[in-house]
Protein backbone atom coordinates (compact mmCIF):
# COMPACT_ATOMS: atom_id res chain seq x y z
CA UNK A 1 0.00 0.00 0.00
CA UNK A 2 1.28 3.49 -0.86
CA UNK A 3 2.15 5.93 1.91
CA UNK A 4 -0.59 8.48 2.63
CA UNK A 5 1.43 11.36 1.20
CA UNK A 6 1.68 9.53 -2.12
CA UNK A 7 -2.07 9.20 -2.40
CA UNK A 8 -4.13 11.53 -4.55
CA UNK A 9 -7.41 10.03 -3.42
CA UNK A 10 -8.14 7.78 -0.50
CA UNK A 11 -11.64 6.37 0.01
CA UNK A 12 -12.62 4.27 3.02
CA UNK A 13 -16.03 2.73 3.55
CA UNK A 14 -17.76 5.13 1.20
CA UNK A 15 -21.51 4.87 1.29
CA UNK A 16 -23.84 6.95 -0.82
CA UNK A 17 -27.59 6.72 -0.87
CA UNK A 18 -30.19 8.70 -2.81
CA UNK A 19 -33.76 9.21 -1.62
CA UNK A 20 -35.33 7.97 1.58
CA UNK A 21 -37.57 5.17 2.79
CA UNK A 22 -38.70 2.67 0.21
CA UNK A 23 -37.45 4.89 -2.58
CA UNK A 24 -33.91 4.83 -1.21
CA UNK A 25 -31.25 3.74 -3.69
CA UNK A 26 -27.76 2.81 -2.56
CA UNK A 27 -25.22 3.87 -5.16
CA UNK A 28 -22.05 3.17 -3.19
CA UNK A 29 -21.93 0.60 -0.43
CA UNK A 30 -18.59 0.60 1.25
CA UNK A 31 -16.04 1.59 -1.36
CA UNK A 32 -12.41 1.33 -0.36
CA UNK A 33 -10.03 2.64 -2.99
CA UNK A 34 -6.73 4.48 -3.18
CA UNK A 35 -5.52 6.40 -6.20
CA UNK A 36 -1.83 7.23 -6.23
CA UNK A 37 -0.45 10.56 -7.31
CA UNK A 38 0.59 10.52 -10.99
CA UNK A 39 -1.47 7.46 -11.66
CA UNK A 40 -4.03 6.91 -14.41
CA UNK A 41 -6.78 4.92 -12.76
CA UNK A 42 -9.77 3.65 -14.69
CA UNK A 43 -13.09 2.78 -13.10
CA UNK A 44 -14.95 0.16 -15.06
CA UNK A 45 -18.10 -1.82 -14.53
CA UNK A 46 -21.67 -2.18 -15.69
CA UNK A 47 -24.07 0.76 -15.89
CA UNK A 48 -25.47 1.75 -12.51
CA UNK A 49 -22.62 0.19 -10.53
CA UNK A 50 -21.68 3.55 -8.95
CA UNK A 51 -18.70 4.67 -11.06
CA UNK A 52 -20.04 8.15 -11.75
CA UNK A 53 -21.16 8.59 -8.16
CA UNK A 54 -17.66 7.65 -7.01
CA UNK A 55 -15.88 10.20 -9.23
CA UNK A 56 -18.46 12.83 -8.22
CA UNK A 57 -17.51 12.25 -4.57
CA UNK A 58 -13.80 12.26 -5.47
CA UNK A 59 -14.24 15.55 -7.35
CA UNK A 60 -16.04 17.12 -4.40
CA UNK A 61 -19.26 17.80 -6.26
CA UNK A 62 -21.23 15.24 -4.28
CA UNK A 63 -21.06 14.44 -0.58
CA UNK A 64 -21.00 10.84 0.54
CA UNK A 65 -23.60 9.67 3.06
CA UNK A 66 -21.03 7.84 5.15
CA UNK A 67 -17.35 6.97 5.06
CA UNK A 68 -14.25 8.98 4.40
CA UNK A 69 -12.86 10.39 1.18
CA UNK A 70 -9.66 12.40 1.18
CA UNK A 71 -8.32 14.14 -1.87
CA UNK A 72 -4.66 15.12 -1.45
CA UNK A 73 -5.24 14.65 2.25
CA UNK A 74 -8.22 17.00 2.31
CA UNK A 75 -11.54 15.76 3.69
CA UNK A 76 -13.79 17.59 1.20
CA UNK A 77 -17.09 16.71 2.85
CA UNK A 78 -16.17 18.60 5.99
CA UNK A 79 -14.81 21.65 4.22
CA UNK A 80 -16.90 24.80 4.31
CA UNK A 81 -18.66 25.48 1.02
CA UNK A 82 -16.43 28.31 -0.19
CA UNK A 83 -13.30 26.38 0.77
CA UNK A 84 -14.57 23.36 -1.13
CA UNK A 85 -15.29 25.54 -4.19
CA UNK A 86 -11.81 27.02 -4.02
CA UNK A 87 -10.28 23.55 -3.65
CA UNK A 88 -12.20 22.31 -6.68
CA UNK A 89 -11.34 25.37 -8.72
CA UNK A 90 -7.63 24.95 -8.02
CA UNK A 91 -7.14 21.20 -7.90
CA UNK A 92 -9.71 19.42 -10.05
CA UNK A 93 -10.09 19.27 -13.81
CA UNK A 94 -13.11 17.79 -15.56
CA UNK A 95 -13.57 16.00 -18.86
CA UNK A 96 -17.12 14.97 -19.67
CA UNK A 97 -18.65 12.46 -22.02
CA UNK A 98 -20.80 15.17 -23.64
CA UNK A 99 -17.87 17.65 -23.61
CA UNK A 100 -20.08 20.26 -21.90
CA UNK A 101 -18.51 23.19 -23.66
CA UNK A 102 -20.39 26.48 -23.46
CA UNK A 103 -21.89 26.69 -26.97
CA UNK A 104 -21.76 30.47 -27.27
CA UNK A 105 -18.08 30.75 -26.36
CA UNK A 106 -15.21 30.16 -28.74
CA UNK A 107 -12.79 27.29 -28.13
CA UNK A 108 -10.30 29.67 -26.51
CA UNK A 109 -12.95 31.28 -24.34
CA UNK A 110 -14.17 27.87 -23.19
CA UNK A 111 -10.65 26.96 -22.20
CA UNK A 112 -10.24 30.15 -20.17
CA UNK A 113 -13.16 29.35 -17.85
CA UNK A 114 -11.18 27.60 -15.05
CA UNK A 115 -8.66 30.43 -15.04
CA UNK A 116 -11.38 33.06 -14.86
CA UNK A 117 -12.97 31.18 -11.96
CA UNK A 118 -9.57 31.32 -10.25
CA UNK A 119 -9.46 35.08 -10.72
CA UNK A 120 -6.99 35.31 -13.61
CA UNK A 121 -7.53 38.29 -15.90
CA UNK A 122 -9.23 37.74 -19.24
CA UNK A 123 -6.31 38.73 -21.46
CA UNK A 124 -3.85 36.57 -19.61
CA UNK A 125 -6.31 33.67 -19.57
CA UNK A 126 -6.89 33.94 -23.31
CA UNK A 127 -3.16 33.99 -24.00
CA UNK A 128 -2.66 30.84 -21.95
CA UNK A 129 -5.73 29.21 -23.54
CA UNK A 130 -4.21 29.71 -26.98
CA UNK A 131 -0.98 28.07 -25.81
CA UNK A 132 -2.82 25.08 -24.37
CA UNK A 133 -4.98 24.73 -27.48
CA UNK A 134 -1.76 24.71 -29.48
CA UNK A 135 -0.56 21.86 -27.27
CA UNK A 136 -3.68 19.81 -28.02
CA UNK A 137 -3.36 20.47 -31.74
CA UNK A 138 -6.06 23.08 -32.08
CA UNK A 139 -3.91 26.18 -32.45
CA UNK A 140 -5.73 27.15 -35.61
CA UNK A 141 -9.22 26.70 -34.18
CA UNK A 142 -9.06 29.01 -31.17
CA UNK A 143 -11.86 31.21 -32.46
CA UNK A 144 -14.15 28.41 -33.54
CA UNK A 145 -17.41 27.79 -31.74
CA UNK A 146 -18.01 24.26 -30.42
CA UNK A 147 -20.64 23.74 -33.12
CA UNK A 148 -17.95 24.31 -35.74
CA UNK A 149 -15.73 21.56 -34.33
CA UNK A 150 -15.88 17.79 -34.72
CA UNK A 151 -16.52 15.56 -31.70
CA UNK A 152 -12.82 14.76 -31.34
CA UNK A 153 -11.89 18.42 -31.57
CA UNK A 154 -14.50 19.35 -28.97
CA UNK A 155 -13.10 16.72 -26.63
CA UNK A 156 -9.63 18.12 -27.15
CA UNK A 157 -10.95 21.58 -26.23
CA UNK A 158 -12.50 19.99 -23.13
CA UNK A 159 -9.12 18.44 -22.28
CA UNK A 160 -7.43 21.80 -22.75
CA UNK A 161 -10.02 23.27 -20.39
CA UNK A 162 -9.36 20.51 -17.87
CA UNK A 163 -5.61 21.10 -17.74
CA UNK A 164 -5.22 24.86 -18.25
CA UNK A 165 -5.23 25.65 -14.53
CA UNK A 166 -2.81 22.78 -13.88
CA UNK A 167 -5.01 20.79 -11.53
CA UNK A 168 -3.56 17.87 -9.59
CA UNK A 169 -6.52 15.59 -10.23
CA UNK A 170 -8.45 15.22 -13.49
CA UNK A 171 -11.68 13.25 -13.48
CA UNK A 172 -12.99 12.05 -16.82
CA UNK A 173 -16.41 10.58 -17.43
CA UNK A 174 -16.49 8.36 -20.51
CA UNK A 175 -14.15 10.64 -22.44
CA UNK A 176 -14.06 8.42 -25.54
CA UNK A 177 -17.50 6.86 -25.66
CA UNK A 178 -18.84 9.43 -28.12
CA UNK A 179 -15.81 9.10 -30.39
CA UNK A 180 -14.78 6.59 -33.02
CA UNK A 181 -11.93 4.21 -32.25
CA UNK A 182 -9.19 6.21 -33.88
CA UNK A 183 -10.25 9.54 -32.42
CA UNK A 184 -10.78 7.94 -29.03
CA UNK A 185 -7.28 6.52 -29.17
CA UNK A 186 -5.84 9.90 -30.04
CA UNK A 187 -7.73 11.56 -27.22
CA UNK A 188 -6.40 9.02 -24.75
CA UNK A 189 -2.85 9.50 -26.02
CA UNK A 190 -3.35 13.20 -25.55
CA UNK A 191 -4.72 12.78 -22.05
CA UNK A 192 -1.98 10.40 -21.07
CA UNK A 193 0.75 12.56 -22.62
CA UNK A 194 -0.32 16.03 -21.57
CA UNK A 195 -2.13 15.35 -18.37
CA UNK A 196 0.39 12.93 -17.00
CA UNK A 197 3.35 15.02 -18.09
CA UNK A 198 3.32 16.97 -14.86
CA UNK A 199 2.61 14.15 -12.48
CA UNK A 200 -1.11 14.63 -12.52
CA UNK A 201 -3.55 12.03 -11.38
CA UNK A 202 -6.29 10.90 -13.71
CA UNK A 203 -9.40 8.99 -12.77
CA UNK A 204 -11.32 7.88 -15.82
CA UNK A 205 -14.74 6.27 -15.80
CA UNK A 206 -15.17 4.21 -18.93
CA UNK A 207 -16.97 1.35 -20.59
CA UNK A 208 -14.61 1.50 -23.51
CA UNK A 209 -12.40 -1.58 -23.36
CA UNK A 210 -10.33 -0.21 -26.26
CA UNK A 211 -8.68 2.32 -23.98
CA UNK A 212 -7.92 0.01 -21.04
CA UNK A 213 -4.34 -0.27 -22.28
CA UNK A 214 -3.71 3.34 -21.20
CA UNK A 215 -4.51 2.62 -17.54
CA UNK A 216 -1.91 2.13 -14.83
CA UNK A 217 -4.54 0.35 -12.78
CA UNK A 218 -8.13 -0.57 -13.37
CA UNK A 219 -10.70 -0.73 -10.59
CA UNK A 220 -13.65 -2.90 -11.43
CA UNK A 221 -16.89 -1.99 -9.75
CA UNK A 222 -20.14 -3.83 -9.33
CA UNK A 223 -23.22 -3.07 -7.29
CA UNK A 224 -21.70 -0.07 -5.54
CA UNK A 225 -18.45 -1.79 -4.53
CA UNK A 226 -14.93 -2.02 -5.93
CA UNK A 227 -14.66 -5.73 -6.60
CA UNK A 228 -11.04 -5.82 -7.66
CA UNK A 229 -8.16 -3.63 -8.77
CA UNK A 230 -5.88 -4.92 -11.51
CA UNK A 231 -2.84 -3.54 -13.27
CA UNK A 232 -3.50 -5.13 -16.62
CA UNK A 233 -6.74 -5.24 -18.56
CA UNK A 234 -6.14 -8.89 -19.43
CA UNK A 235 -6.67 -9.71 -15.78
CA UNK A 236 -10.28 -8.52 -16.09
CA UNK A 237 -11.30 -11.34 -18.37
Amino acid sequence: MAADQDLAVSCRGLLKTYGTGEAMVTALQGVDLDVRQGELMMLVGPSGCGKTTLISVMAGILDQSEGDCRVFGQDLMHLRNHAKLAFRARNIGFVFQAYNLLPTLTAAENVTVPLLINGVGRKEALKKAEQVLEQVGLGTRTRSLPSQLSGGQQQRVAIARAIIHEPRLIVCDEPTSALDHETGHKVMELLKGIAMGRDRTLVIVTHDARIFEFADRIAEMDDGRVTRVVTNSSQLH
Binding site: A86, A89, P114
Partner: peptide, 10 residues
Amino acid sequence: QFGVLKAMGT
Protein backbone atom coordinates in the same frame (compact mmCIF):
# COMPACT_ATOMS: atom_id res chain seq x y z
CA GLN B 1 -23.74 25.03 -18.48
CA PHE B 2 -24.41 26.51 -15.06
CA GLY B 3 -23.76 23.03 -13.62
CA VAL B 4 -20.40 22.89 -15.39
CA LEU B 5 -19.47 26.29 -13.98
CA LYS B 6 -20.57 25.15 -10.54
CA ALA B 7 -18.59 21.92 -10.78
CA MET B 8 -15.50 23.87 -11.79
CA GLY B 9 -15.77 25.97 -8.65
CA THR B 10 -18.00 28.91 -9.48
